[in-house]
């Protein structure tokens, strides 16, 4: 069969059978699934790994964690020894007394990398010692808060009605209690220390995530996939955890990362009133607080802990963004 194809700008082409090649139907190839089938978590991990910003955030965090664990062990200065002859030294300096003492004894004198604080304690050691406390408390408290918040908020939002009403009223009452009172009472009952600190912070901290989750669940309750899952016979718990939470994960992760500096400074406040870490132990929050008082005269004492808090936040955010993109089921990764 020959046809002539002609158009405005095309030359006349004669179509003969020789020009056309029959490809035929290759059923096998057609049925081959080219895109690999992935579970939700595999998909998430791939997306995360491929995200350079998120990976950078992760690397920074890992570096901080490693430094926090090892740096205090490797430095010659202790985080707690007072030295009235080396007070308020700027970074990378030593005082005259220290230099004289080292010249006498013949030992090599290590510089104070971050300087010293008002009591002559080395800030490098204190910063990394403080990192242990702050990173641990920040991550632990926020994680616990989020888990509790998800459960409570999810139940409240999903079941609605009376359960929702009761839970929300309990939240109202809890939120109205001033945190100081709770903290002091906890201190009386449980003594001071990291455990009571975490309990004090979690006791009220879970509320904001619960509220957030509840709001989102209320919104998503009427989505089609929820309906689909229920039709297929999924239990309520399964619907909440398996279907709704991944869709809420974006906001949740954002909220989590935002809550961490809050946790760090709350810890500083609580430690000041006696619950939490005891002197001479320190944390980034405490370092920032004491540094803030001296901001005008010795700015480095504030800049250093503030810098670390900010960069930790940044890395967490980068990681968090990556996680959010990774965990979002609507955004499938590319390969």
């Amino acid at each position: 069969m020959t046809e002539t194809i002609a158009g405005k700008n095309t030359p006349n082409i004669e179509l003969t059978d020789e020009l056309l090649q029959r490809v035929g139907k290759n059923t096998e190839e057609m049925n081959k699934v080219v895109r690999p089938s992935l579970t939700y978590w595999q998909d998430a991990w791939i997306k995360l790994r491929k995200n350079p910003v998120a990976t950078l955030g992760l690397i920074i965090l890992v570096i901080y964690i490693l430094m926090a664990i090892f740096a205090p062990m490797l430095t010659p200065y202790s985080y707690r020894t007072n030295n009235s002859r080396a007070m308020n030294l700027e970074p990378m300096q030593n005082s005259e007394d220290e230099i004289a003492a080292a010249a006498e004894s013949g030992e090599k004198l290590a510089p104070h990398i971050f300087g010293t604080d008002q009591m002559g304690r080395d800030l490098w050691a204190r910063t990394w010692m403080g990192a242990r406390v702050s990173l641990f408390i920040g991550l632990a408290v926020v994680s616990i808060n989020t888990v509790i918040g998800c459960l409570v908020g999810g139940v409240a939002g999903y079941f609605g009605g009376r359960a929702d009403m009761i839970i929300m009223r309990i939240i109202d009452v809890l939120y109205g209690i001033p945190m100081i009172i709770l903290a002091i009472l906890l201190m009386v009952v449980m003594g001071s220390g990291i455990v009571s600190l975490i309990v004090a912070m979690v006791a009220i901290g879970w509320i904001s995530s619960a509220r957030l989750v509840r709001g989102q669940v209320l919104q998503l309750k009427s989505s089609e996939y929820v309906l689909a899952a229920k039709t297929l016979g999924a239990s309520d718990m399964r619907v909440i955890i398996r279907h709704m939470l991944p869709n809420i994960s974006g906001i949740l992760i954002t909220n989590m990362t935002m809550a961490i500096p809050n946790a760090i400074f709350n810890e500083a406040f609580l430690s000041y009133i006696g619950i939490g870490i005891a002197a001479p132990m320190c944390s980034w929050g405490l370092l920032a607080r004491t540094g803030a008082a001296l901001m005008e005269i010795y700015p480095y004492q504030l800049i250093i802990p503030a810098f670390f808090i900010c960069t930790t936040m940044l890395s967490l955010n980068m990681l968090g963004d990556g996680l959010r993109d990774a965990l979002d089921p609507k955004m499938r990764g590319k390969y």
Binding site: I65, R80, V133, L135, F136, I194, I277
Partner: peptide, 14 residues
């Protein structure tokens, strides 16, 4: 693991 190490280290001093 790192969280546990923190927790341990933070307590260890006392």
């Amino acid at each position: 693991l790192s969280l546990c190490i923190f927790a341990a280290c933070a307590q260890e001093e006392t």
